[in-house]
């Protein structure tokens, strides 16, 4: 399982990838040669909620399992090759298939009952509300005079 944890925005691997890619002149060429986690995940913070998006082209919504345990959201499923295509007729195979699973542990407590998910154009979008205690707050400072 491609477990994923982070403490803040710094992604050391992204920096390394970018540096190596810059040296060789092309990041994307690199990323195709290096095994990539599947599905690719993006994470966004919108103050009182997180957004988790996963690229799952060619999969239907019913083939995705979404689970929550504590502060961890796990998605899993199986991506199958197109049916009726004999193996020997393939001339090139770059797309990844098979069983997949990824989990994301959020740095703040999440409101698991409020999690919702949608799926369109091969992208899963999970909206993860932060627990009320974890949302950013402005506390007014009152004058004691």
């Amino acid at each position: 399982m491609g477990g994923l944890q982070w403490q803040g925005q710094w992604d050391p691997f992204r920096e390394i990838r970018q540096e190596v890619g810059r040296l060789l002149g092309n990041i994307e060429t690199m990323s195709l040669r290096v095994p990539r986690p599947f599905p690719a995940i993006n994470l966004y913070d919108e103050g009182d909620r997180y957004y988790l998006t996963a690229e799952l082209p060619g999969i239907s919504a019913s083939e995705i399992d979404l689970g929550i345990a504590g502060q961890t959201v796990t998605i899993r499923g199986e991506r199958r090759r197109p049916e009726g295509v004999p193996e020997e007729t393939y001339r090139r195979q770059e797309r990844q298939f098979g069983r997949w699973a990824r989990s994301v542990t959020f740095p703040d407590r999440i409101d698991s009952a409020g999690v919702s998910a949608s799926f369109a154009r091969g992208i899963l979008t999970v909206v993860v509300p932060k627990n009320a205690d974890a949302r950013p707050r402005q506390i007014a400072v009152s004058s004691a005079e």
Binding site: E28, T29, L32, G58, P82, Y90, R92, G122
Partner: peptide
């Protein structure tokens, strides 16, 4: 490709059918 990586390269599969070739490209979103 140019020196700056502006584009993403979609992964593809190519297979043969009796009438020709089929190319599948992942273009999520």
């Amino acid at each position: 490709p140019g020196p700056s990586p502006v584009f993403r390269t979609p992964p593809i599969d190519i297979f043969e059918e009796p009438g020709g070739l089929v190319l599948l490209a992942d273009l999520p979103g």
